[in-house]
């Protein structure tokens, strides 16, 4: 369906006939979309039934009845034929006498047994190999575990030994008073600073050193260097 573009383009159409073909546009969706409800003007519209011609109806009824009977008759005939064919034909299987059948069966049994024996032999060999591999694996793992345990015990014993050595200098209840006395007698002053030259500047107890004045250590260090 084609529709002329109205307004601005229509005026262009008048003035410039060359581009007339470009001012045509196709309207693809002419119909109401499915999801919109019935139009208001059509809401109460009850569509009229077109009466069928009775001659035509009768003839069509007869033809259809005839056709269905023909088709079903032929179908059932072909199905019966196929069934009979399936039952009687020997195309898909061999027909044997009971003796032949027995012989065939015995042959099959013998072959099957031979296969079974061969596979049993292979299986035996495989199982033996697997058992040996498993045994070796377990032994290796046990040895590894034993070595690891020994190493661990040695490591722990070393720790215990070191700790025993260090316990000699521990402060206990017995020598607590002596340790306190010793600590009081020898105060340690950590409040100092060191510069890049190794000079020590004492802080709190000695008092901050005044500029130009050197502490004992500093003097010793500088005199030594």
């Amino acid at each position: 369906m084609l529709r002329h573009v109205v307004g601005q383009s229509a005026r262009i159409l008048d003035t410039n006939l060359v581009c007339a073909s470009t001012n045509l546009q196709f309207v693809r969706w002419r119909r109401k979309p499915r999801w919109l409800p019935v139009a208001k003007s059509k809401r109460f519209l009850v569509p009229e039934r077109k009466p069928q011609d009775s001659d035509e109806r009768l003839e069509l009824l007869r033809l259809h009845n005839n056709y269905r009977t023909q088709l079903r008759s032929v179908t059932s005939y072909l199905m019966k034929e196929a069934e009979v064919n399936r039952k009687t034909s020997t195309a898909d299987h061999l027909v044997l006498t009971p003796e032949q059948e027995e012989a065939e069966f015995q042959k099959c049994v013998a072959e099957n047994e031979a296969w079974n024996a061969k596979i049993a032999q292979e299986r035996e060999a495989r199982l033996q190999k697997e058992a040996a591999e498993r045994e070796a694996y377990v032994a290796r793992k046990l040895e590894e575990a034993r070595i690891k345990q020994e190493e661990e015990r040695e490591r722990i014993e070393e720790i215990v030994r070191l700790e025993k050595e260090r316990s000699r200098s521990y402060i206990t209840k017995e020598n607590l008073d002596a340790a306190i006395d010793h600590a009081l007698a020898n105060p340690v002053d950590h409040n100092f600073a060191i510069d890049l030259q190794g000079n020590i500047y004492r802080g709190r107890d000695a008092g901050p050193s005044k500029p130009g004045e050197k502490s004992a250590e500093q003097a010793a260090l500088t005199s030594g260097s």
């Binding site: 001659d55 035509e56 009768l58 003839e59 007869r62 033809l63 005839n66 009977t69 023909q70």
Partner: peptide
Amino acid sequence: KVTMGLGTPASPKL
């Protein structure tokens, strides 16, 4: 009447 052909028309007028 059931025949394999067209058969006798019910409405010969057609």
